[in-house]
Computed example of a mutant assay.
Amino acid sequence: MKRTLLVVFLINAILVSTHKGEFWPFSIFPMFSQAGNPWSRGLVIEVDDMNRKDLWETKSLSSIDDRVVALREHGIDDIDYANFISKTKNWDEERIQALRNLFQIEQQGDAKWLASRVTGHLTEQDSVVVKVIPMFLVTSDTTYKNPDLFK
């Protein structure tokens, strides 16, 4: 029994030391090491009326559930989009054009999509707050910036 435990601990020590801590359960992957930290992802919302009064307002996730665009159905990699929208800090014209290219918006017909960033964090009361922040309204011929974010 002692020999078995010693062998298991020895194997574990070797694996952990040769993989820079990347051996479960000692992983530095976010799912193990960053629980409770604020996060940011991307989401696309279908827009039927570009003149909505609440178009650029920050919303709750439950208020837009029925309008979320399934990007994979349009041939768009949702992980690429999520990384692009959540990690880009400097939105110059080149980045905005890259967003349009990622959406392949010219092939989407008369689609009007609201490129949004979803953020979440844990409160001191152990509840999760999730906000949907509209960033760009992308149509077949134009991209509009959220006037509250890009002044």
Rank of each mutant, 00 (worst) to 15 (best):
M1Q: 10
E22Y: 05
H121P: 01
L102P: 06
A111N: 08
D65F: 04
I14L: 15
D66T: 14
G42Q: 07
Q125L: 06
M31H: 05
D65M: 14
R41D: 10
D80S: 13
L10N: 02
V44N: 02
T18L: 13
I105M: 15
I96T: 06
M1E: 11
E73P: 00
S62M: 09
N12Y: 12
H19C: 04
I28V: 03
I85A: 05
E22K: 07
L122Q: 10
I28R: 12
L122K: 13
Q34V: 00
K131H: 13
G120I: 03
K2V: 07
R95P: 00
A82Q: 14
W24G: 01
S27M: 11
M50E: 15
K151G: 11
V7D: 00
V118W: 02
F136T: 11
S116W: 04
T88Y: 09
L71A: 08
N37A: 13
H19W: 03
N51R: 08
G109Q: 07
W24R: 03
V68N: 12
F26H: 09
L149S: 12
W91N: 08
Q97F: 03
V44C: 10
E46D: 13
L149P: 02
F23N: 04
A115I: 01
L99P: 03
D92V: 04
L55R: 08
N12T: 11
E94C: 00
I64Q: 07
D126I: 04
D126R: 15
